[in-house]
Amino acid sequence: MAFAIQFVIDVLSLGGAYALMALGLVIIYGILRLVNFAYGELIMVAGYTMYLSSGSSLPWLVMAVLAVGMAVLFGILTDYAAFRPVRAKSVTAVLITSFAFSNLLQNAALLFISPRPRNVPLPEIFSQTVSIGGAITPVRNLITIAASIVLLAAVAFLMRKTTLGIAMRAAATNFTMARMLGVPANLIISSAFALSGFLAGVVGILWIGRIGTVVPGIGLEPLLVAFIATVIGGMRSLPGAVVGGFLLALIDTTLNYTLSQDLLKFRDAFTFSLVILILLWRPEGLIKGPASGQRT
């Protein structure tokens, strides 16, 4: 029983984080049909903001808000630096500029901060554990589950009930038509990047909370997770991203429990093989996105 509880908590907390990561990537992809390779660096930005503000006497929550704010800011900055100038030219051009921008941010962190890990301030509660039904689990896992439930619900509310969200969904299927109704293209795109940055910021704090330090390459794993989860779930569907995130977490956690120490090192390779199998079966991913959709 305790094992089952442990397993479920692991899957849910990992899956929540994965789902948020994937969601942040798909929000951009859904609207622009463009992949943001600099997405992982938003998590890095959140981490370094925490590190840089750790010297101040600000309460932790303020630091966290600041970190999320910086991630939002850099999200919007990504649009201006890597997307807007080349958006109309070609898909490959944007892939390359966002990849270059990702390298730029990473190396800036390397140059101006340090290649070595830096400690990130975390509240006491992140390192405490509780016992649930005999299973001992870190409190931060429960925080992650709670945070992801709240955020997923908030994103669902935003996309279903607010004018901005409905306009974003409309823009994802037919950008030109949305503009013809008066929905400003730039507002939609900036909102998408801001939302993406917001999700990256929150997930960044939760993610870094597991290790307690930040390095320039911290964004790689979340980026990869978001990539794989979105490919599994379907590149253009928001629910697909969430499903993909939880499914990937289920696969990873199962492998964590079943593989021997020797094989565990190859976990990513096993996960990837499973992804290939899923894609052989469904090249579009599990959930198909909106029916139509041209790029702008």
Binding site: A170, T173, M177, A178, L181
Partner: peptide, 14 residues
């Protein structure tokens, strides 16, 4: 160009 995934009401609202 209707927005196929949006409801009729949401289309009109936009």
């Amino acid at each position: 160009d209707v927005f196929p995934d949006l409801t009729v009401a949401e289309n009109l609202m936009l």
